[in-house]
Design a protein around this nucleic acid. Structure first.
Length: 223
DNA sequence: TGCCAGGCCGGGT
DNA sequence: ACCCGGCATGGC
């Protein structure tokens, strides 16, 4: 099923009326945003905040500091984020990539064109499509739409695409349907996450959802 | 108490 | 090309 540009914009305006400007991503620097993108994999953001705070307190939130840290020192610092052993490896993989290819400079990294850079990020072990797009969009101001579990859930419950459809299928929906605009992608995804957190859990609260009445009342599914 | 969160990888069919 | 188990903490 396809969605027209008008319909995507209509949904956008509804969400905007409800949430206003969200100023995403929560993070002060491109590096902090990138680190957060890895730490938040399948994890509640509140846990990630603690982990980032600990990195700051340890003066470890820089490319050089992270590069110097051993896994056994890094893992306990990010413990509150969960999966701390795998995430320590994933963070180090990203930092090694950054050091090796761009002298540790995100500024240099983001000079690269979006498509080839996205491929490079995906080749880093531990960075999948959502993490790559989050880094591109929120840390690099590059127009790559981010798809997450909430977005899939919301759009599949409204009968647009099956939940099991691929990341690229969902991403194409937005990137073909919307103008290629960084602020638009940024705000749109931020609002989808918010609506997901507020109304679209496994047990949805459709009664008071701002999207109520968009298409029909969504049939409930397990996802 | 049990279920869930802003995924991704590796090994097995 | 799928499918599935593993990874782990903190909040409700």
């Amino acid at each position: 099923m396809k969605v027209s540009r008008r319909e995507l914009m209509r949904v956008y305006r509804r969400l905007y009326r409800h949430y206003g400007d969200l100023h995403w991503w929560p993070g002060e620097t491109p590096l902090e945003i990138s680190v957060g993108a890895i730490l938040t994999q399948n994890t509640a953001w509140t846990n990630v905040e603690r982990a980032i705070q600990r990195l700051k307190e340890a003066r470890a939130l820089s490319a050089t500091a992270l590069d110097r840290l051993t896994y056994s020192r890094l893992a306990p610092l990010i413990r509150p984020a969960g999966y701390f052993n795998v995430k320590a490896v994933r963070l180090k993989n990203f930092i090694s990539f950054l050091q090796g290819s761009y002298q540790g400079s995100l500024k240099k990294m983001f000079r690269r064109r979006t498509d080839p850079l996205r491929s490079e990020l995906l080749s880093v072990n531990g960075i999948g499509p959502e993490t790559a797009d989050s880094i591109l969009l929120y840390a690099g101001d590059k127009p790559s739409f981010v798809i997450d579990a909430y977005t899939k859930r919301i759009f599949s419950r409204h009968g647009i695409l099956g939940y099991e459809e691929s990341y690229e299928a969902f991403q194409g929906l937005f990137m073909k349907g919307l103008p290629r605009s960084v602020p638009l992608y940024n705000q749109y995804h931020a609002m989808l996450v918010n609506i997901g957190k507020d109304y679209c859990h496994r047990r949805p609260l459709c009664g008071s959802c701002p999207l109520k009445g968009w298409r029909s009342t969504p049939p409930l599914r397990s996802n």
